[in-house]
């Protein structure tokens, strides 16, 4: 790696969101580096998922800005964020249960891409996550791990530049997890920016180049794994005062 600091893909500045008096995200600033895997961690209720929801337009921020390729994403609708090349998965999978695996995939195809090409990409990605044999099965009939893979593959359909993964490791077995991590690294190899929310510290510490820690809606630390592991504030946030 060169001496230059990596370029920033997503630049969140002073983001705020209140839910009826609860400050879910409270003036948080995060800068996710381009082309790398970043981790976003923090205790339950620290505002990680809310940050994802704000990033993808699922909820609108009260104030603050999200810069991406020079545009401010704050206040855009989810589908507009999607069209900018940012996709996501959900903490609890939200695949379409009464649609087949193939239809799930095709639903996220960009309409600017001809249908034939969209279909080809869907086939390709199903092969990528080993779901081709379930192509014409209803999403709801898949196991939880398979649903996670499907959701992951679906998020890749539009060939996004930024992929936000909300707890990809939760509820799937070790073999599948290893597969998933391999896929994530391959994506990184293609130059994609990846942000992972995760409670599994093995995933975070071993696979993320940079880790951001949130607590009470604020960023309390950032840095590579070794630094975070030693950070007093992070330890306090997770374990309370000693």
């Amino acid at each position: 790696m060169g001496a230059q600091p990596p370029e920033i893909a997503l630049d969140i500045r002073d983001l705020r969101k209140n839910f009826g008096g609860i400050r879910a995200v409270d003036g948080c600033s995060l800068a996710f580096p381009r082309g790398q895997i970043s981790g976003l961690i923090g205790p339950n209720g620290s505002g990680k998922t809310t940050t994802f929801n704000l990033l993808t337009g699922v909820i609108a921020p009260d104030s603050g800005a999200i810069y991406y390729n020079g545009d401010n994403l704050a206040g855009l609708k989810p589908y507009q964020v999607f069209r900018k090349g940012i996709t996501r998965t959900f903490q609890i999978t939200r695949i379409y249960r009464e649609m087949t695996v193939f239809e799930n995939m095709l639903s996220a195809s960009r309409l600017s891409v001809p249908e034939r090409q969209g279909r080809a990409r869907a086939e390709e990605l199903m092969a990528f996550v080993n779901l081709t044999h379930l192509r014409d099965e209803y999403g709801g009939n898949l196991s939880y791990g398979q649903q996670k893979l499907l959701e992951f593959a679906r998020a890749l359909m539009p060939d996004p530049d930024v992929i936000l993964l909300d707890e990809p490791a939760a509820g799937i077995n070790r073999t599948l997890l290893a597969d998933l991590l391999t896929h994530i690294h391959r994506l990184q190899g293609m130059g994609k920016t990846i942000v992972i929310i995760e409670h599994d510290m093995n995933v975070i510490m071993n696979h993320c180049a940079k880790i951001f820690v949130m607590d009470y809606g604020l960023k309390i630390a950032e840095g590579p794994a070794q630094e975070i592991q030693r950070n007093e504030q992070v330890i306090t946030a997770y374990f309370g005062h000693r």
Binding site: V58, P78, Y79, V81, R154, P158
Partner: peptide, 11 residues
């Protein structure tokens, strides 16, 4: 199936 997910996936 899931309006919120659909919206987040470009619809």
């Amino acid at each position: 199936e899931d309006e919120l997910a659909a919206e987040a996936l470009g619809v």
